[in-house]
């Protein structure tokens, strides 16, 4: 007998229960919530930053932010970077990037999270190897809570997607919080269509 059969048999012997349906869930919406405001507060609480859009040039503050940096990899058309990714780029080649700039599929107000799928990332390590990330997020794509987030279609369409909630962090030594553990040192969001 294969281990697979062995384990499944063992489980079936152990659980002699009647069939039941999986619990169904409410969405726990709070009607009064200002979703965009909540998103901003939650993101900041998680150590992320909000980049304001200048009325004249919405990308002004993004450009200022990256002006001094050497290697910029942008996969959004609005910003020109100097590192181009191709189908053959190896994931580890992204290790010297200072700023990664990309657009998230959606955001979550409850936790200040943004969802980056493999399509948003182009190469998955773009979410982790750069020193800093700048994320564009359409405010209309912010959902209220995690129940809404996991009802989104993306999770069934891709091989890889992650919720990023601020930059990487650790408090493993004496509980001292450090933003910028193994992944990015900062994550900033520009809310823009």
């Amino acid at each position: 007998m294969s281990s697979r059969e062995f384990i499944l048999n063992q489980i079936r012997q152990s659980c002699q229960t009647e069939h039941s349906e999986a619990p169904t869930l409410p969405l726990f919406h709070q009607n009064s919530v200002d979703i965009i405001e909540r998103f901003k507060q939650s993101l900041i609480a998680m150590g992320g930053q909000i980049i304001e859009a200048d009325p004249q040039d919405p990308y002004k503050f993004v450009k200022e932010r990256i002006a001094e940096s050497k290697v910029i990899c942008s996969v959004v058309p609005e910003i020109q970077g100097n590192r181009h990714l191709t189908e053959t780029t190896e994931p580890k080649e992204l290790q010297d990037i200072d700023y990664g700039i990309l657009r998230a599929s959606f955001g979550v107000a409850e936790t200040g999270s943004i969802c980056l799928t493999e399509q948003d990332l182009f190469i998955n390590t773009l979410g982790y190897l750069p020193q800093h990330l700048i994320i564009f997020l359409d405010p209309k794509q912010i959902v209220e809570n995690l129940h809404d987030a996991y009802a989104r279609p993306e999770w069934k369409q891709i091989h890889y997607a992650a919720l990023h909630s601020g930059p990487s962090a650790t408090a493993d030594i004496e509980g001292v919080l450090i933003r910028g553990a193994q992944g990015v040192r900062s994550l900033s969001v520009l809310l823009i269509e």
Binding site: A22, P23, L25, S42, A45, M46, G47, E110, T111, G112, S113, N145, L146, H147, A149, Y150, A151, W155, K156, Y160, A161, A162, L163, H164, S165, G166, P167, S168, A169, A171, G183
Partner: peptide, 25 residues
């Protein structure tokens, strides 16, 4: 996936008192 929401809402809040882990992949 819908069930995942319940656990993600509880996990990091229970563990570290943060609303969510920085990465939920």
């Amino acid at each position: 996936m819908e069930h995942l929401a319940v656990f993600i809402r509880l996990l990091s809040r229970s563990a570290l008192g943060s609303p969510i882990t920085q990465y939920t992949s």
